[in-house]
Design a protein around this nucleic acid. Structure first.
Lengths: 112, 112
DNA sequence: TCGATATTTCCATAGTTATCGAATCATCGG
DNA sequence: CCGATGATTCGATAACTATGGAAATATCGA
């Protein structure tokens, strides 16, 4: 993953509504969530939501599919993992991920 | 870690020069790097570098100390781990960190 | 104290991003 | 085909971010 792509992903997530939308999409899993539903849940006008979803899509963090009149968005886990990979490798250098750092703490907490 | 803080950290990293600076600081470890050295390495005017470092500091990702005439910046690993924590917990939900996801892949690669 | 060095603050400016109503496009049911 | 529904695109505007030179601040050595 190049720095340029990483920056686009970070920029995409660095916004209140987009971070919130992405969290919901991650929770929703494969099934995804329609644009209108996201707009309603986040109390954002449809055109604004569309703008934000386009940013997330442009960053490769979400994919979309049409289902009748709705457009369903879903999180792209591999893109997110690519981002985590980059951050772990380049920005967590001093405290590698296998000891007491974030990722592992989470992993343990999760399986506990 | 609240969403607000997370967004500030993501915004801070979502910029070419700041991401590059932070990577260097992570590599440098406790010792840190002086503002002027960073400016020179990244080929950015001193005042611009100062601006970017202020953003990183504001996000809590770096700390600074004066050492004679220089101001030495160093990465705050715990803040970065806090960010990783949040992302793992909120944005990697579907594929928890203990299986094939980024963090663990990294951890294994690192200790191998 | 003076001059040099390291950095930040100030300021103007250019560029980018967010917002949201209105217009447009796509799909469906009848 | 028509009206309704779900979504995007357009366009204007406001807000924020990045840039970099000049001035100000802090520290040092002599």
């Amino acid at each position: 993953m190049h720095a340029e792509v990483v920056i686009r992903a970070l920029s995409a997530l660095a916004q209140e509504h987009r971070l919130a939308a992405f969290r919901l999409l991650v929770q929703a899993g494969e099934e995804g969530i329609a644009a209108g539903v996201l707009a309603e849940k986040l109390e954002v006008p449809a055109s604004s939501m569309s703008f934000h979803l386009a940013q997330l899509a442009n960053a490769g963090l979400v994919s979309q599919r049409r289902e009748s009149r709705s457009i369903i968005y879903s999180a792209d886990y591999s893109a997110m993992n690519g981002l985590m990979d980059y951050l772990t490798e380049n920005c967590c250098g001093g405290i590698p991920c296998g000891e007491d750092a974030a990722c592992n703490t989470e992993a343990k907490r999760r399986t506990a």
